[in-house]
Design a protein around this nucleic acid. Sequence first.
DNA 1: CGGCTCATCGCATTCGAATGCAATTGCATG
DNA 2: CATGCAATTGCATTCGAATGCGATGAGCCG
Lengths: 348, 348
Amino acid sequence: MGEKAKKSTRANWKRATSYDVAELAGVSQSAVSRVFQDGASASKQMRKRVMAAASKLGYRPNAIARGLITRRSNMVAVIMSQQTNLYYPEVLVQLTQRFSNHRIRVLLFTLKSEGDIDSTLEQVLQFRVDGIVTAAMLSGAQLATVQEANIPIVFYNRSLPDIPSNSVRCDQEEGERWLVAQLFASGHRTFAIVSGPEDSSVSTERTTGAIQMLREHGVDGVTIVTGDYGYDSGRDAFARIVDRHGGPPDAVIAANDVMAIGCIDEARESFGLNVPADVSIVGFDGVGPAQYAAYDLSTVRQPVERMTEAAVSMLIDRIEKPDLSEEKRVFSGERIRGSSAEFAADTG
Amino acid sequence: MGEKAKKSTRANWKRATSYDVAELAGVSQSAVSRVFQDGASASKQMRKRVMAAASKLGYRPNAIARGLITRRSNMVAVIMSQQTNLYYPEVLVQLTQRFSNHRIRVLLFTLKSEGDIDSTLEQVLQFRVDGIVTAAMLSGAQLATVQEANIPIVFYNRSLPDIPSNSVRCDQEEGERWLVAQLFASGHRTFAIVSGPEDSSVSTERTTGAIQMLREHGVDGVTIVTGDYGYDSGRDAFARIVDRHGGPPDAVIAANDVMAIGCIDEARESFGLNVPADVSIVGFDGVGPAQYAAYDLSTVRQPVERMTEAAVSMLIDRIEKPDLSEEKRVFSGERIRGSSAEFAADTG
DNA sequence: CGGCTCATCGCATTCGAATGCAATTGCATG
DNA sequence: CATGCAATTGCATTCGAATGCGATGAGCCG
């Protein structure tokens, strides 16, 4: 058993540095540094000596110190509102793995509330991350702060109108318009909408898209109730809709899948309704439970794979070439014809 | 409009340092440093001058440089296997927020595969995190590596038998035994088990607990099929069970809720069975969809709030007092009597 | 064998903030 | 007014690795 770093009490323990390795190997610190870099020039025997000494001491390059001198932390910040994270765990997983393929680590920031952004942003900037992906909305001033700090930032599923900025998003309005068009084409005439939280820009876009499309079809004065993206709020919303509407409408348009599922359960359980015979219900997102047989939602799925890939490469591009101009990428959602709503025949 | 940091082309931009602030304010760099610390001594007017200069320059302390000198990065690593993250997004969110209350940031690592641990661990150690929470299993050698690096580590929902280590977990076996006891007490006599992936220690514990309890009741030779924790694998598993078993058993014990849901859907859709009249199905976790009305699972919920709180405080304690001895905390799951299984009367 | 190129290596400096120590100041006290 | 004590402040050093530059030496060609 070759002994590792010599044992001592935990308290006065000291991690091995490149100097320690250099001394043991009888070379200079710079040599050690070069051995642990990719493109640096070091002879074969130098490599051997250094690596031997390094492993004997349990040495590992200190990424913090490296970050200081190279001015690259190799970390990006991912900012998520609580909701986003709960409903799209894949987004986070995929971002993390894709960044990891580029040897970049993710420093995660979740917002307790929207008001939390300023202090969070301050933290982000102090950590000198190389870039930021945010799934939370920033104000113009906040964006300006980031830009002044010269840190590339990509918005995920939101974008600031009229302000040049990088963003990757799913076309919420387009998707919602398709859903409404289908509902209308298949004969639905009375509608209700379950929107998300007031401060959710995604919800706003979806709701707006639905309302506009309805208006274009001459439908006005639609019942709108507000939810919080959660299952219970979906159930509650459906009950309120029936109450206000004096019975179920032909169709309910929920701002996300989870609330749509809540609506379905409430319709079935509390009102004994048949979905979609008595009432059609559509959602948005294409999350896992949307495809459970009990619900089989008609919905629009966000192409998460392509979107995360786009966000990552867009950010890395700006990190490597800071002068690239801004870019916005908009993806169409995948249209899913489930059985939670009666849709027109397959004509697109 | 007081002008912010003076504009210049992005390329040659330079962030303000404490020296810049010091110069502008006509004080020493140490003074600036002290103003930006909590307990440091600095007069009122000093604070004012420095803060004025700092905000004029858009100065922010560099957390990387600070970490180098203080030997505290104020970051902890959270290691998650892909699955864990997908089924427990709350775990991640809660850990992040609780750490954030202690001014600690989360550096996220997700594993592509189990074989990925070694390289991931290497990265973790290079970043000189102050501590680690892992929801992935480590080998004894891997744990030793971490301990040699003198970094406190807490296992989430796993623990190494016979090796002193810190862990927070839910008592999987106890929960599973309760479920089985309930099933047995209410008259079920034939059983099948849907286990999780082979390399999931959580699945092993749950499955073991179920098998043992069944054995104690004289039930042997139970059908066991393997899934991957996903919905589709649950559906598939149920079909295979019926096939192997020559018809549905009295009860199916799934290693997690999502697969239990898959089983229910398959039982209903493909076999026209009634749940729980024809077959009882139980899960484990207490995730959101488990409570959807269409499923209303009988399951055991992990007390995520208390567990994350425990993990965070346990880790922070070790970071602040490195000589604390190891500790394991085991939480009982919350027993949920849903309608997916016929259970005995409410006698515990 | 001389001259030349190129790879390798060490020296010294740098990144940005924290901190022990000493110097200075202010203020209260005898 | 002299002395003592505490609060401020500055100086110089430190954390650990990267890198430009110059020195050295090996290998190659004529």
